[in-house]
Design a protein around this nucleic acid. Sequence first.
DNA 1: TTTGTTAGTACACCTTACGAACAAACATTT
DNA 2: AAATGTTTGTTCGTAAGGTGTACTAACAAA
Lengths: 391, 391
Amino acid sequence: MSSAGTPERADSARVVESFGPRRVLRPSVKVLPEQARAHNRSLVLQTLYRSGPLSRADLARETGLTRVTIGDLVGELIAESLAHELGVRIDATRPGKPATLVDLHRDGHRIVGLDLSDTDVFRGALIDLNGTILQRRDADARGLTGDEATAAVVELARSLVELADRPLLGIGVGSPGIVDLSGTVLSAPNRGWVDEALQARLEREFATPVIVANDANAAALAEYGFGGASADLMLITVGYGVGAGLLLDGTPLFGSRFAAGEIGHVVVGTDGGDACACGKRGCLETWLAVPRLTARLDSGLDRETVLRQAGERLGIALAPIVGALNLSEVVLSGPPALLEGALAAATVETLRQRTMAQFHGELTVRMTSLGEDIVMRGTAVMVLSARLGVS
Amino acid sequence: MSSAGTPERADSARVVESFGPRRVLRPSVKVLPEQARAHNRSLVLQTLYRSGPLSRADLARETGLTRVTIGDLVGELIAESLAHELGVRIDATRPGKPATLVDLHRDGHRIVGLDLSDTDVFRGALIDLNGTILQRRDADARGLTGDEATAAVVELARSLVELADRPLLGIGVGSPGIVDLSGTVLSAPNRGWVDEALQARLEREFATPVIVANDANAAALAEYGFGGASADLMLITVGYGVGAGLLLDGTPLFGSRFAAGEIGHVVVGTDGGDACACGKRGCLETWLAVPRLTARLDSGLDRETVLRQAGERLGIALAPIVGALNLSEVVLSGPPALLEGALAAATVETLRQRTMAQFHGELTVRMTSLGEDIVMRGTAVMVLSARLGVS
DNA sequence: TTTGTTAGTACACCTTACGAACAAACATTT
DNA sequence: AAATGTTTGTTCGTAAGGTGTACTAACAAA
């Protein structure tokens, strides 16, 4: 190692994302037995989370691990009160020793989820491990920017943390704007945030795991985790602006600058369009954002025509994406009165007309089933994933 | 077991470690020590591949593993003749026992790569571990379909396998059409292939690891592995048809039906266009495919105008994709005389006009530097990744 | 009561990686 | 020339993880 780098420097115990000139194979990180154990532990947690109460033998069959190992891991989880025994199974049809059921301690922990996507209000909720919202708290957010906005977020979080009657699994936050992997809001124009280290701030404040992510990504995770969506999914959020969250093989896509999903200011079509605040003409937002839609509807234009046109434009914008990613599911989130019906129908119709239909036999475009809670429940998924998921 | 006192304490202590990665709950597979070993073994292979000859101590520093473990792993690799010692390092400036350098046995193995993307010819090459093409063999492919085409592929592979003077690491094939993860060509209209199990066939024939993948995906891997491209990349292939290969974080994207990248028949723009063989009007192929371009140029239209228009249309089609995925690099593969210059310039210009430029400050659109060998060298990357890479 | 099945655990064993210690081989200093 | 210090690579014993085998407990069916 004479030419490149000094050997002594490499005392750091792991290989970080070092950019070699020719990275055919991706340098990874060493794996120790300890991490293998953590992986298997997560596997047990996930299996319990998905498949409800199970016996240790069930877990062994499901995971492929032996009953011995499962017994050990379950013991560890019970000792940490992440899991607990429910007593013997009453299903007495089978011979043999009756199984003692084990389950996640679903009522033993709470999650705090915050949704900062609305212009006027910060929404928060206390959520259990099933994603059920137990309590809600809102905070007025009109006009809040910079430190003021941050302070309001902290206070809203505090009110919910104090409400929690069980140990907190973590705090999840869905924020508008560009959010990097460390939970720093790189840019959120509406709040005047630039490089706002929201996750670090909340972690310091509450000494609890915190995950801050983009609101549309959180929504996509909610649709996957609680909405029954598939693992390849594009979720379109329509509100004051237009955004998207992309899930590929169950993993959120972030993009090279963490700006994946920012499709609001992509120009749609080749026939002009209205002027946009960004300076261009015909951005997707000029066709689809709620203020634009309501303005058009209020101006007396035919409702059906306006909504169909918006749906068509969405379809035009999505067609290359759906084609390139071979997506089979697009979910819309926003005011149902606007999105449902004509708009969604026009979108799917346009998509079919502009892509190779045979690759998308099951292409669906539908409204979310999670309503206004989608982002908050998505943040719960993020916390669950970070605390229980596989690394 | 938790030797850390109360459950609550152990709980929050574990938090920090299991934190960071963002992956949704996804049933995974158990990890045994054996697989951890395989992972670390791959880590050593990758480090050697990237950083040339290294001593065992270098490897230990680089990977974070101990010299002991590295010694063991290297011994294993040498026993399999995947690696070999090069003698002591001549760099005598440092004190201490001189290091014995170890490197991949780069000249100890061969890869056979096949490129089936051309209409008229099947291209093949014998490739070494550095991706250098040692020998070439072509086969006439005009009009070949079905079993005939398959037989020609097998024979081309055989001629190259027989040429190999070293043990074969594997055979890589880049095929047009839709290819699933098992290397079955689900659909390749030009060859009349439907559910053609090409990979299985070749594996049976040569008793060697074989990887069959889509040609555009292979090309994208080549650009990443040998062309100096970043890990987030879209590679556009322009030829008889138009296709794309997507690399996200270094991993090829396949899509829900393995049809990711099939953008040739996405309709571009909202102002009509020529009729396409697929039945629609204004597909990307009608603007960009080589036969269409040459026809237009031959018809006496202004060369600059024709190429600029094609580039604009490509930009229009790519804008939503680049925006949604936050891509920073687009690479073109095809006839340089057509793609370089006006066409590429118009593409990048259009992209900047139709997306949010600030998210793509470094957005580049360029020709591949690998020329006609791009697919074959990409198949070498696939083989290298499968044989040496992390699973 | 006997037989067969299922659940969960105890124990020995294998694999993996680590830390400590050491010899070999060199440069530098005394 | 000898002593000192540095670096390399190996040997040895140890800790952690998981498995396989064998065991007990608890039940149903004959």
